[in-house]
Design a binder for these strands. Structure first.
Lengths: 212, 212
DNA sequence: GCAAAAGTGTTAGGATTACACCCATGA
DNA sequence: TCATGGGTGTAATCCTAACACTTTTGC
């Protein structure tokens, strides 16, 4: 009976890419699931801090530098029945919000939209769902993650898009959005500002908000 | 550089004892902190399930049998700066609600009231605070833990007492309690029933509730 | 009867929801 | 000028917080 634990730290890296939230995956080099895109994860080293392991996972599995991390929060601990004998049996998941300006040029990196996730190896699909739920629940409660997700200035349409994408990834019904602009208007942490760009899409341009 | 992780599973076992919530601690047999009461925790074994490790911790550190566990939920993952070189650097905490009828006869076991916690070794004080916060937040949301905490029938005074004890352990201000009985009356999962015992304390006896 | 403990009445204020309708933009 | 995407007006509803007051108990 072995006495050393097998624990992996799995990042759930989320990035705003071409106007929608994407999951950043790394193509696995080794079995199991060699060649398939999966959450960047590493086996935890002794005396290694959680944040260090997350950075190591992002860098070694997807070529993402630590500086790209805007926020990182706990997303749950997962037992995985399905894993092979050799692999980790326990996964500590951290939701990571990446800077949208990050260059993701590593050849192993793969981005998939949060509202159209493919099949993922291991129990990574369930982990992503939990992470999305955690982020949704922490909106307007954890201001760090909220600001990291939305940026310093954002408009109502962007917020609604993020909520829909996260709800899709979480497997939750599409949220009500009718009165969200009003709610933002009465949020004392926000201030309505004039749009920077002239306009973007088709209809009436949404209200733009800035953190005070 | 060692490559094996040191991960401990720490139970935060809570039990209703003499009318108030108590934390179940185990007196440590070995250094560090030999002789002091601490959360029952074990180093995670390879391929061991979380639930198994929690049961092992309770049995081996406090003599509590697995059958006493009414509910068990995740309470967070903790980095601990302060630990000695030899010890775990990462702790996975699980809140455990124990059956109030459990005989705690093990000589190593020690019970301390949640609303009057002593100093605890390691970062156990912070872990207990987080666990209490998690349980408070999951009241009426996670019905499993809620029922485990309150029992099949309970009265309004008991609920208020549990909320106060948990708030104290969490380091939160004492909750408002003026309209709680009303809220229970409009909860469709509960039904008001006649008190079983004639009466207990001094003033007017509280309303008794039963899960439908 | 008195004090303690808890329930109940009542009210004001605010939040939520829903729905209809109006406004700004690009084509 | 039309379709589109969003904002705004408005009212019904519900929830919340207070605070005073009443009820039920033990002593």
């Amino acid at each position: 009976m072995p006495t050393q634990p097998l624990v992996s730290i799995d990042a759930v890296p989320v990035i705003l890419h071409e106007g929608s939230l994407h999951l950043v995956l790394g193509v696995r080099e080794y079995d199991p699931f060699a060649g398939r895109a999966a959450l960047p994860g590493v086996l935890l080293n002794a005396h290694e801090r959680l944040a260090e392991a997350v950075e190591r996972a992002l860098l070694s599995k997807a070529g993402v530098a630590a500086g790209a991390i805007l926020a990182s929060v706990e997303a749950g601990v997962f037992d995985d029945f399905e894993r092979d004998e050799r692999g980790p049996t326990l996964s500590i998941a951290r939701l990571v919000i990446l800077d949208p300006n990050t260059e993701l040029s590593d050849e192993r990196v793969e981005m998939v939209p949060l509202d159209g996730l493919p099949d993922l190896p291991f129990d990574h699909r369930a982990i992503v769902a939990r992470a999305a739920t955690v982020l949704l629940d922490s909106l307007w409660i954890n201001l760090g993650t909220t600001r990291a997700l939305l940026g310093d200035t954002f408009d109502t349409a962007e917020l609604i898009a993020r909520m829909k994408e996260l709800s899709a990834a979480a497997g939750l019904p599409v949220p009500e959005t009718a009165n969200i602009g009003r709610a933002l208007g009465s949020n004392k942490l926000l201030e309505r500002v004039a749009p920077a760009a002239p306009a973007g899409g088709r209809g009436r341009p949404p209200a733009v908000w800035e953190w005070v």
